[in-house]
Structures are given as structure tokens and as C-alpha cells.
């Protein structure tokens, strides 16, 4: 018989428990080996750095989606939000460098605002988030077409674009370090700190059991609304990086919401909330991107991307559901 005691940190990190990051690390390792076998050059610093920079928007979206999913909701609006942001930025900047920073600020505010609306409709009007954010998705798609008369107008300034496409060149050992990668690293650190804070722990608590949380004094609606705002902000940053990297089009954000959800699920986060880490979600996004790169190396058609994503979602959820079912007797 012994009472509770903290265990040493390494044991806590490595213990294979549901929601831990061990499985996704294992999958990532396997993919890296397959890549190394087929295309060893890919793992050389310069191309690896470019790959990481390219993956930054998707990883950020996965982190944003993680906040929402772990609190027990969904955000389907991020893809169209990215598109809307890119198109709006191009029209407002209209290739005038002096407008860059005001527009960046506007995009961040806009992203937060869309998240706020999603959150309030879901929590205060009690519309299921699946429906709320699907509605927001459609509203944004329509609004952006209407506002731009069917074709993107204007253009992004070079200032704006450099975050998505430029890098520090001639860095020792690494070769080149994309700005996007630095942005990503800073935000990853912030996300990890956030999840270790009181707010982060409360967010997971809400996803685990909102009734318990409410009866312990948590303002569940407020916590979830903040999660949507964070997702909106993540979409805004992703839009800035993506706009810079791939330019302005109505296709800029298409399908990104499903990519983000797939990544989060792959990273061991339970749909319905209450389990999983933000690091796992981001590693899930990285793994997914690596998988697509690998498919490319092996000559698999890019058209299969969405099929692969769908299969991953189904498989990951089925695996975690059956694992949970077999554990039910343990309480």
C-alpha cells in the first residue's frame, strides 16, 4: 500500500498510455526510414529544412484544431477561413508594401473574430459545433466569392510574402532556415506552455467531462469559446504563411480543415475531447505531410491524398475506440 507520489519525469513521458505521443513517434520513425531508403537526399539539411517550413501552416492548423477537439468540439471552418484571409489580404494590400503590417493585424483580428463567433454560437446558442462551423465554412466561401466578384484581385506585397517563402541562407550545418520554420518554433513553444498552464489543463478537463468541470466552477462556455478563437488565430497565421508560399487563389485553403482533423486524430487525440497532447497533434501533421511526400517519391498519384486522409481518420478512430472498449472493465 502506498499513497500517491510524483513519478520521475522520463517515466511519465514515455509511458505508453492512450493519448501519449509514443505511437505517433513510432509511425514517424517508420516513415523516415522509408524515405531514407528511397530518397536519402531528402533528409539532407537543406531539403529537410524546406520541408519543415512548407509544413508549418498545416502544423499550425493542427495545433489550432487540437485546442477545439480536445475541448470536445470541431472546427470545420478553418480551410475556408484561410482562403478568405488570403484573398482579402491580396485585395487590401494591392501590392502596396506600406499596407503590409496593418493588413497582417487585420487578418489576426479577423481570424480571432471568426473563432469568437463560432464559439459563441456553439456554446451560447447550443448549436452543435459540427453544424456551426460547417455553416461558417459555407458563409465564408460565399462571402469571399461575392466580395471579389468571382476572381481574386490585387496582389500581395513582397514584405507579406517573405514569411512564407524566404529563409535565412547560409546558416552553418543547416544550410537554410525558412522564416516559416522560426514562426512555427515560436508558436509551438507557446502552444506547449499554454497546455501546461491552468487554462490548458482546464481545456482538457472540459473535453473529458463538461458536467464535472461546470460543477467545479469552470465556465465551460468561455473555455470552449477561447479554443475556437485560438483555432481562428492559427488559421490567420497559416493564411499568412500559405499566401506567401503559394500565392493568391480560391484554392488556397481547400481541404485544410480535414487535413488538420486527420493530423490531430493521427496524433492520438481523442475525438470528443479529453485526451491527447498538442505535441502529438503537431507530430500528426508532420507525419501526414511526410506521408504525402513519400507517396510522391513512390510515384503514387496525388489524387489519392483525400482517400488516404479518410482511411487514416477511420483507422485511427477505430483503433482508439476498440482500445477504449477493451479497457472499460478496468474501473
Amino acid at each position: 500500500m502506498r499513497t500517491v507520489q510524483p513519478r520521475p519525469l522520463p517515466m511519465r513521458l514515455l509511458r505508453a498510455r492512450p493519448g501519449g505521443i509514443l505511437p505517433i513517434l513510432a509511425i514517424l520513425a517508420v516513415l523516415l526510414v522509408l524515405v531514407a531508403l528511397r530518397q536519402p537526399d531528402f533528409l539532407a539539411p537543406p531539403s529537410l529544412m524546406s520541408f519543415l517550413g512548407r509544413s508549418a501552416p498545416v502544423i499550425l492548423l493542427a495545433a489550432g484544431q487540437y485546442f477545439v477537439i480536445v475541448s470536445g468540439e470541431f472546427d470545420l471552418s478553418v480551410g475556408s477561413l484561410v482562403t478568405a484571409q488570403v484573398v482579402v489580404a491580396a485585395r487590401l494590400i494591392d501590392s502596396d508594401p506600406s499596407r503590409t503590417w496593418p493588413v497582417v493585424a487585420l487578418l489576426l483580428v479577423g481570424g480571432a473574430l471568426v473563432g469568437l463567433v463560432n464559439g459563441l454560437i456553439t456554446t451560447r446558442l447550443r448549436v452543435p459545433s459540427f453544424i456551426t462551423t460547417l455553416g461558417m465554412f459555407l458563409i465564408l466561401v460565399g462571402a469571399v466569392y461575392l466580395w471579389s466578384d468571382g476572381a481574386p484581385k490585387g496582389g500581395l506585397s513582397e514584405e507579406f510574402r517573405r514569411y512564407g517563402r524566404r529563409a535565412f541562407e547560409d546558416v552553418p550545418v543547416l544550410g537554410r532556415v525558412p522564416y516559416a520554420l522560426l514562426v512555427l518554433l515560436v508558436l509551438v513553444a507557446l502552444a506547449v506552455l499554454l497546455m501546461r498552464s491552468d487554462f490548458g489543463r482546464t481545456l482538457v478537463a472540459v473535453g473529458d467531462n463538461p458536467r464535472t468541470a461546470e460543477l467545479s466552477g469552470v465556465r465551460v462556455w468561455r473555455t470552449r469559446t477561447i479554443a475556437f478563437v485560438l483555432s481562428g488565430l492559427a488559421a490567420a497565421v497559416a493564411a499568412i504563411l500559405l499566401g506567401g508560399y503559394s500565392g493568391v487563389s480560391f484554392q488556397a485553403g481547400v481541404g485544410l480543415e480535414f487535413g488538420a482533423i486527420t493530423a490531430v486524430v493521427l496524433g492520438g487525440v481523442a475525438l470528443g475531447g479529453g485526451r491527447g497532447s498538442v505535441v502529438g497533434a503537431m507530430l500528426g501533421a508532420l507525419t501526414l505531410e511526410l506521408l504525402f511526400a513519400l507517396m510522391n517519391f513512390y510515384g503514387v498519384s496525388g489524387a489519392l491524398r483525400s482517400t488516404v486522409q479518410g482511411a487514416i481518420i477511420l483507422l485511427a478512430v477505430a483503433v482508439s475506440a476498440t482500445r477504449n472498449a477493451s479497457r472499460q472493465g478496468e474501473t
Partner: peptide
């Protein structure tokens, strides 16, 4: 303070750690 009769349904966070469960109300309020 209120200790509910429905421990599983509204008393605990089943999938969180013992420590997180003990800290829940303090963190929130």
C-alpha cells in the same frame, strides 16, 4: 463545496490524472 452523488457522471474527469482531478476547482476558480 458539493460532492455529487453521481461520481462517474459529474464528479470525476475519468481520463485525467489523480493530480489534475484534485487541482480542477482551484485552477478554475
Amino acid at each position: 463545496a458539493y460532492v455529487t452523488e453521481d461520481r462517474k457522471g459529474e464528479g470525476i474527469l475519468a481520463r485525467q490524472s489523480v493530480l489534475d482531478n484534485a487541482l480542477l476547482a482551484g485552477r478554475a476558480v
